[in-house]
């Protein structure tokens, strides 16, 4: 049975700050646990992976984070050089072509070239072989936020349409085939069950289908508040309390405030879960808000287990 973990390429997308990096790390960890060799590729990210994995810092060189798990934080400058070398098959030729002053300013001026170098690098790693088999079974792209992700993923198609046939279009075609192949690629949308992230996610899904043609997998709804105070005696009790009590006078004031916030956030979560089901009918994975003062390796692991269990129980077609 083919599951999400049998894909070659998973793109994690969503609105800024919804937890793309966190979820990508959890997913990478789950795939590695299942025996896959995984490369987690980030794009110009703040360095957070060392904390999430409790491992070495991750910069623009690929590092091994743990058994079967590698990571890289791609920056356009380095990616462009690397990709240039790959295409030209020689450092010397690359230098001659790319590091020539004139050529460099010319290349920089090509719109989308930075994005293309990032995508090109990811695509290249997906084709890398070692000991007669792919070097990585799965590449997870912790992509840029919403609109930028679409731009990034649309580049191969733009190149195919605009650039005359040659090595560049050959790679672009191959990258585009990878991006649109449901056997190999899935885009996972991460969202929160809140108004703005939900709006953006619905729009993002539509654009991803229309403009990129990338297959969309289960929706990952992150940071769901626990169902406290939404029914039963705890709700009845909270409902009986005054809306607020005088802050300064009563030590219980902050507690009451937090309980009410918890109640409202959960209620809000439920409303937007409903809206998602109506307007973006995809299978869903629900991830709880983890109350971790410092979201570190233990929290990543907990999220990873929850993610894996839910992905495993999705119907085959969905996963």
């Amino acid at each position: 049975m083919s599951t999400l973990f049998d894909r070659q390429f998973i793109v994690i997308a969503g609105k800024g700050g919804v937890g793309r990096t966190t979820v990508a790390a959890a997913l990478a960890s789950a795939a590695a646990r299942r025996g896959k060799r995984v490369l987690l590729a980030q794009t110009k990210s703040k360095e957070r992976l060392s904390r999430l994995f409790g491992g070495p810092p991750v910069h623009s060189e690929i590092v091994r984070v743990r058994e079967r798990l590698w990571a890289v934080n791609m920056v356009p400058e380095a990616a462009l050089r690397e990709y240039g070398v790959m295409v030209l098959h020689s450092h010397l030729v690359y230098r001659a072509v790319f590091e020539n002053q004139l050529a460099r300013s010319f290349i920089r001026a090509i719109p989308g070239i930075e994005d293309y170098s990032l995508l090109g690098k990811v695509w290249f790693h997906s084709t890398e072989m070692e000991h007669g088999r792919p070097k990585y079974d799965l590449i997870i792209l912790d992509g840029p936020a919403t609109g930028h992700a679409i731009t990034l993923l649309s580049i191969p198609r733009a190149i195919i349409e605009a650039v005359p046939e040659g090595p560049l279009t050959r790679d672009a075609r191959s990258a585009h085939q990878l991006l649109t192949d449901p056997q190999r690629t899935t885009m996972l949308l991460v969202t929160l069950a809140e108004e703005m992230p939900v709006n953006e996610t619905i729009e993002l899904a539509a654009r991803a289908r229309r403009e990129v043609g990338i297959p969309i997998g289960p929706l990952l709804v992150n940071q769901l508040y626990p169902p406290r105070f939404v029914s039963g005696p705890s709700k009845r009790a909270l409902d009986l309390l005054p809306e607020t009590i005088d802050q300064s006078a009563d030590p219980l004031a902050p507690l009451l405030h937090r309980s009410r916030i918890a109640q409202r956030r959960r209620a809000l979560n439920e409303r937007y879960l409903e809206r998602l089901q109506r307007e973006l009918p995809l299978p869903e994975v629900h991830l709880p808000y983890l109350f971790a003062p410092d979201f570190g390796a233990a929290a990543t692991e907990e999220l990873s287990q929850l993610l894996e269990a839910q992905l495993a129980s999705l119907p085959e077609a969905a996963a």
């Binding site: 105070f229 705890s234 009790a237 909270l238 937090r258 309980s259």
Partner: peptide, 12 residues
Amino acid sequence: WTGASAVAIGLG
């Protein structure tokens, strides 16, 4: 959360 609901219930 257990604590908070206990307090809420107590006050209630």
